[in-house]
Design a protein around this nucleic acid. Structure first.
Ligand code: ZN
Ligand code: ZN
Ligand code: ZN
Ligand code: ZN
Lengths: 131, 131
DNA sequence: ATCGCAAATGCAATTCTTTGCATTATAATA
DNA sequence: TATTATAATGCAAAGAATTGCATTTGCGAT
């Protein structure tokens, strides 16, 4: 790996927003610094950063992947399938299971940004009503 | 919802294969029965079936989503990020956590086919070596 | 049997993402 | 500094999946 200015501006964008944002949003912000940058370069950089554990790539049901800095550390989410509400979960919650899996299968766990789907209380009633 | 022959042939294809297969593979098998069927119809049917809990839709790193019948019940997987090895996990392993989440947030859990990423023993050494 | 509605479908266009290949930029080496 | 190897990039094309809109189909009500 080599010093890439795209990587730098992507991380900057992700750290400034601190939320999950799409590649389009990232692309816009990188382009503010590197006007001639190509989308595929951004995608490749995102892949690279995820592979190195710097960011997470997730499907949160928005129609496009969302990206987030891993600076604040591993964490997970519970997402309502119907309204999209996102709840933050401590990653420690899965620590025990992950350790057990590592012990049982000899794997080294990589997952650090799980997305669990469910129905929030409000959407449960609306779903029963026939939403 | 209405009786859809596409749904029927998709479920048949998934139950016959019993493995995770791609939409292209499903499309081929549905087309054997309905030669004029359109890909988008298959995609929409797959979405419908997943929404009704009949099938799972997952990214197993194959470049396309993979689909599986939920007939055999909820289950999960541990997948090697590098070589793609897939390990089957009992869903009961997550029962406790899911119950706790439901109690804590009032959500009804929907996730029934988790995909966890890791590195298998062999790929761990190769990764350290610089693969 | 006929009517009317809602679900399902076909088709084309669009969106999001990946990939192949040639080129450029960086870092290490001689 | 000149050379070489490797990583990153640009560009265009391909691939996967979704969406809009018009049409068809199945189902219940009349
Ligand atoms: Zn997150
Ligand atoms: Zn909700
Ligand atoms: Zn499975
Ligand atoms: Zn492996």
């Amino acid at each position: 790996m080599r010093a890439s200015s795209v990587d730098h501006y992507i991380l900057q964008a992700l750290e400034e927003s601190s939320e999950h944002i799409t590649s389009a949003q990232i692309y816009e912000r990188v382009r503010a610094h590197l006007p001639a940058v190509n989308p595929s370069t951004v995608y490749r950089a995102l892949e690279r950063l995820a592979h190195n554990g710097k960011i997470s790539i997730s499907d949160l049901g928005r129609g496009a992947m969302v990206y987030q800095s891993m600076n604040a550390g591993a964490h997970d989410h519970l997402v309502c399938q119907r309204c999209g509400e996102i709840i933050h979960l401590e990653h420690d919650r899965f620590k025990e299971i992950f350790s057990a899996l590592e012990a049982q299968y000899g794997y080294r766990m990589v997952t650090n940004h799980l997305v669990l789907w469910g129905l929030c209380p409000a959407c449960q009633s609306e779903s029963e009503a026939g939403g």
